[in-house]
């Protein structure tokens, strides 16, 4: 059916694209904007590899979001997480603490973890499990992923203290 001209705001950049109503945010990002960092998985909301962060930084499943619904609303993807030329503390911790293996689910895991830590830098074990249960990981058994999230939280808390002091 008729395509609509929409403006997707991805990682702070505005892109005007013509999208059919039935195209998902995932499809438009990957196939029109060529942003392949966000992965295509089950496309039915249960594996989490397509996770991006919405307006409030919340973790959303781009396979179940219509692109037209995101017209004019900012989205952050894995390509927009780095801080300048440095990795974000979540990415850094994933790298350092062995939370990355095959790497296919990693973008979804990072975006799910970032959504949690953006609003809670002192998560309990249950908070971490709850934030991550929507995301699959076959390789790591989630163990090092959880460890990395705890470490990233620590780094972010330190940063808060330092920022507060300066």
């Amino acid at each position: 059916m008729a395509k609509q001209l929409i403006t997707l705001i991805v990682n702070g950049d505005s892109y005007e694209v013509a999208a059919a109503p039935h195209q998902t945010l995932l499809e438009v990002m990957r196939d029109i904007l060529n942003m392949t960092g966000t992965k295509r998985g089950c496309t039915a909301g249960s594996c989490g590899v397509c996770t991006v962060n919405g307006e409030q930084g919340e973790a959303i499943l781009s396979c179940l979001a219509l692109a037209v619904e995101w017209d004019g609303r900012p989205v952050t993807t894995i390509e927009g997480v780095e801080e300048g030329d440095k990795l974000h503390p979540v990415q850094q911790a994933f790298l350092e603490y062995g939370a990355v293996q095959c790497g296919f689910c990693t973008p979804g895991l990072v975006m799910s973890a970032k959504a949690l830590l953006d609003v809670n830098t002192d998560p309990t074990e249950a908070d971490i499990n709850e934030a991550m249960a929507g995301a699959i990981c076959r390789c790591t058994g989630h163990i090092k992923v959880k460890k990395a999230i705890r470490e990233a939280a620590k780094a972010l808390r330190e940063r808060e203290v330092n920022d507060g002091a300066s």
Binding site: E58, I60, L61, L64, A65, S112
Partner: peptide, 9 residues
């Protein structure tokens, strides 16, 4: 209900 991701949507 579902996962955090699902509840966000």
């Amino acid at each position: 209900v579902g996962s955090r991701h699902v509840r966000n949507m």
